[in-house]
Amino acid sequence: MQAVFSTPKSMKEDFKFTFCPGCDHGIAVRLVAELIDELNLKENTICSTCVGCSVFLYDFLNIDCVEAPHGRACASATGVKRTNPEKFVFTYQGDGDFASIGFAESMHTAIRGENISAICINNTTFGMTGGQLGPTTLMGQVTTTSPFGRNKEYYGYPVKIAEQIALCDGTAFSARVALDTIPHINQAKQALKKAFEVQLKGLGFGFVEILSSCPTNWHMTPEEAHEWVKNSMIPEFPLGTFKDLTEVGVNK
């Protein structure tokens, strides 16, 4: 019998994900590993991982990784890329890491137009530390630090990362995708491929925000969490490509 679907070759042989049951992080890691295989980048890649649920990425992917301080994955990746311009460099971060603690580093990396790719997993909470209110928490959403729901008087509004990054002149590609259904997973892979290709072509900063479920901190079953992504997150964070310079060329 012929294998139709198997583990990507750039995953470690004996890996076991440390994510909670039903967490979409595993699908995002698989898509990244499949693209590294498809684009034949395994020997040429350096990843900058963050602090958060994805902190053990180097235990799953069989590539070189730099462990950045909290929120500083884009800054570390800038240094790696500037000293090794021939390498393929990407960051893999959560929303608390990318858009809260490291928002300054992330935005300025996009403004400078560093030639790296960044992936941000948006699950609306600080997942690893117990589901506290994050910058992307929806209005009215109950978390451990917003027990009566998020309101604008006390907590302000959620940040829309992909749109903000798309406003920067240095950004070559910015998109938001989700992982709740099979079509959305396929679209996520295409968006990630474009974000990787803009770096390989030297066009600038490539960014993909991935809407992910967090069943543990949302106190839901995995299927309920995917329904919540569909019914609550996607209307608030619309999916789509907000900037794409691959068709029109570079801003110079």
């Binding site: 679907f5 049951p21 979409d24 992080h25």
Partner: peptide
């Protein structure tokens, strides 16, 4: 029919599909 939908949605890469 080996559509691999189960494997594509498996968050833990626990499913391999053959045809």
């Amino acid at each position: 029919v080996a559509c691999a939908m189960c494997a594509k949605r498996c968050p833990d890469l626990a499913i391999e599909v053959y045809k």
